[in-house]
Amino acid sequence: MLKLKSLFVLVGSVLGALLLVSHAQGSVVQALALNELVLHADQIVLGRVLFSETFQCPDGQFGTWHRIQIEEDIRGIPEDESEVIIETLGGRIGDLAMHVEGEPAFSVGERVVVFMRGGGPYTAARPVGMGQGVMRVRTEQGTETVTQSREGMLLMRRSGRGGWQKSVGALPIKERLDAFLSKVRFLLQDGAGGDDE
């Protein structure tokens, strides 16, 4: 009887603790799988954020340019380019800020893998799928890992029948950077990225 009671206490403790640490994750955004991120990206780079600067358009909207120093061109970067500019909506100037839920933030000095669309000489690119197109590189115990940025997004996904279904997105859990980049390159070779590669 005592053993049974102890078992209940243990199970109860486990369940209680699990409840406390139950996992989870703004703007309502269609979840993109990795092959879709690759498909819709004109440019893919691994790089380091040099600085971010917010500007104001004549209509009053704010935008922010993030300058990324290219460490590795994975797709679409002209040979002589050493940096790319990524534009996100919103930003802060003085005491006024425009905040767009779901737009990715960048920290100066951090390393990122970015899937971008648009852009070109003298023009900024946009991350694909808002924050989904930004993967953050971290070094943990000597191993470089990559995690997807999903801040401020409610992810949804259309099923083949036209309805929506849950999606884990392109990178549900952190991965080794080298393994992730291999997958991206494989998708590019496999044609997921179109025929310009």
Binding site: G26, V28, D59, G94, H99
Partner: peptide
Amino acid sequence: NPCADRNDIDYRYEPFALAVTIVWRNG
């Protein structure tokens, strides 16, 4: 963005977004 030139990058909202909330706030 109805205020931006349709050929400009500033025109486009994220095509994969169903809705976005834009908040103006004190910095």
